[in-house]
C-alpha cells in the first residue's frame, strides 16, 4: 500500500463506514419489518466493505472509533441525517448509483482496488436496485409520498457534486464520464418515478462538499459521538 493508495482506501472506506452507521440507525425504526431487514442488510454489506478498506490503512477499530471528526475523509452526502424514509432513499439513490459506477470502473481496471471492487459491485448493484424500486414507488405513489421523496432529492442535491471530485489514490477513474453516467442514470429513474431532477448547481459556492478534505457538516459530530462512545468509554471491550 503506497501512501497515496492508503489515502484512497481511507476515502472509500469512510464512505462505506459512515453510511453503514446511518443505515444502522434505521434498525427498529423502519416503516415495516421487511424494510428494517433490507436496510440492515445493506448496512452490513457496507460495513464489510469498510472493514476491508480500512484494514488496508491500519487498525480498523482504531480508525473507526478513535479518529476525530476532521480526520474522516467521507463525502458529506453519506453523513447527512436519515430524515424521513424518502430522505434516506434519496441519499441511497444518489450514493449507490455513484458507488456502482465507481466500483464498476475500478473493477474493470487493474489498480489496487480492482479485486475488492469486483466483489463489492455485486452488493452495490442490489443497493441501487433497492433505492430505485423505492424511488419509483414513493415518487409515483400518493401525493404525500411524492412530495416527501421530492423534498429529500432536493435537499440532498447540493451534496452530490462532491462525488465527482477526483479522489487522491483512487486511480484509473474517468471522473467526467462517471458524472455524466450518474446524471443519466439518476435522471432516468426520477423521470419514471414522475419526479423532477433537482435544479441548482452541484458544485461551486452554493453547493456543499469538502468531506474529502476533512470538513464535515453539523450532524456528523453527533453521529460520531454516538458511534464512538462505547469504544472510548470502555477501551478494548470485547463481547
Amino acid at each position: 500500500m503506497t501512501p497515496s493508495s492508503s489515502a484512497g482506501a481511507l476515502a472509500l472506506g469512510d464512505d462505506a463506514l459512515v453510511l453503514s452507521h446511518r443505515l444502522g440507525e434505521w434498525a427498529g425504526h423502519a416503516p415495516v419489518l421487511e424494510e428494517d431487514v433490507a436496510l440492515a442488510n445493506i448496512a452490513l454489506d457496507l460495513l464489510g466493505q469498510a472493514r476491508v478498506l480500512l484494514s488496508l490503512v491500519g487498525d480498523e477499530d482504531e480508525l473507526a472509533y478513535l479518529r476525530e471528526e476532521r480526520a474522516f475523509r467521507n463525502l458529506q452526502l453519506v453523513e447527512q441525517e436519515n430524515g424521513d424514509f424518502g430522505h434516506s432513499i434519496a441519499r441511497q439513490l444518489y450514493f449507490s448509483t455513484y458507488q456502482q459506477l465507481l466500483y464498476g470502473q475500478l473493477a474493470a481496471g487493474d489498480g489496487v482496488f480492482a479485486p475488492l471492487a469486483a466483489k463489492a459491485v455485486k452488493e452495490v448493484d442490489y443497493h441501487r436496485d433497492h433505492a430505485e424500486q423505492w424511488t419509483l414507488r414513493l415518487g409515483d405513489g400518493t401525493a404525500e409520498s411524492h412530495e416527501r421523496m421530492q423534498r429529500g432529492l432536493d435537499a440532498l442535491w447540493r451534496f452530490t457534486g462532491e462525488m465527482f471530485q477526483p479522489v487522491e489514490g483512487v486511480d484509473g477513474v474517468d471522473w467526467q464520464s462517471l458524472h455524466t453516467s450518474w446524471h443519466t442514470s439518476v435522471s432516468s429513474v426520477l423521470k419514471r418515478a414522475t419526479l423532477t431532477v433537482p435544479e441548482g448547481p452541484q458544485t461551486g459556492s452554493w453547493s456543499a462538499g469538502a468531506g474529502r478534505q476533512g470538513l464535515h457538516t453539523e450532524p456528523f459530530g453527533r453521529m460520531l459521538a454516538e458511534m464512538q462512545h462505547l469504544h472510548r468509554s470502555h477501551p478494548g471491550a470485547t463481547w
Binding site: 421487511e34 424494510e35 431487514v37 433490507a38 442488510n41 436496485d129 424500486q133 414507488r137
Partner: peptide, 20 residues
Amino acid sequence: SLHAPDAEMALRNARDLYTR
C-alpha cells in the same frame, strides 16, 4: 410469508429475509 406492496418488492423482501 411476508408483507409487501407488490410482487417485485415481495421478491426483494424475500431475498433479504429468507436467503441472506
